[in-house]
């Protein structure tokens, strides 16, 4: 049941990515191209997503545990350090070069396009590189 729920959750997220335009690198890159063919659509994606998560998270946290058991695993790190800023700076550079980010590329893989597969293989190589260069474990997501 937990896995069916996870699959369904992924499907909703993926449909959102597809409908919103996040899956289209041309659109993503145009969001950043303020001096050229600017397309501000993606600000609306973030607006819609934040509206739901801001209130939805707070409703979810009224429960004491997650529906399928276990505690809510919310990142506890608060330090704004060199890794956070440097890593994020790098991420933005890569995003600006390729036009894909991981959350858009995973659903986009379902289109069967080879460019998406190539990007994701490169991302995995980047994960390996991080492990080789910075052995100390990194704080988990966000």
């Amino acid at each position: 049941m937990k896995l069916v729920f996870a699959l369904f959750t992924g499907l909703i997220f993926g449909v959102g990515i597809a409908v919103s335009g996040m899956m289209d690198p041309a659109k993503v890159l145009n969001f950043f191209d303020i001096a050229g063919t600017w397309d501000p659509s993606l600000a609306f994606v973030m607006g819609g997503a934040l509206l739901v998560t801001f209130f939805g998270y707070r409703l979810a946290w009224r429960q004491t545990t997650a529906l399928f058991g276990g505690r809510f695993q919310i990142p506890s790190a608060t330090a704004v350090d060199k890794r956070l800023v440097g890593g994020s700076a790098l991420f933005g550079i890569g995003w600006g070069i390729a036009g894909f980010c991981p959350g858009a590329a995973i659903p986009a893989l379902g289109t069967g396009r080879w460019e998406v597969a190539l990007f994701l293989v490169a991302v995995l190589a980047g994960f390996v590189l991080r492990r080789l260069l910075f052995a100390r474990p990194v704080q988990s997501a966000a």
């Binding site: 996040m22 990142p75 790190a77 890794r83 956070l84 800023v85 440097g86 890593g87 994020s88 700076a89 790098l90 991420f91 933005g92 550079i93 890569g94 995003w95 600006g96 070069i97 390729a98 036009g99 894909f100 980010c101 991981p102 959350g103 858009a104 460019e115 190539l118 990007f119 994701l120 293989v121 490169a122 991302v123 995995l124 190589a125 980047g126 994960f127 390996v128 590189l129 991080r130 492990r131 260069l133 910075f134 990194v138 704080q139 988990s140 997501a141 966000a142």
Partner: peptide, 19 residues
């Protein structure tokens, strides 16, 4: 795509998250 992907993977992993 390859260069961008490697930088995305390295950066997002180091910075603990992406979009």
């Amino acid at each position: 795509i390859v260069i961008g992907g490697v930088i995305v993977g390295l950066g997002a992993s180091l910075g603990s998250g992406c979009t």
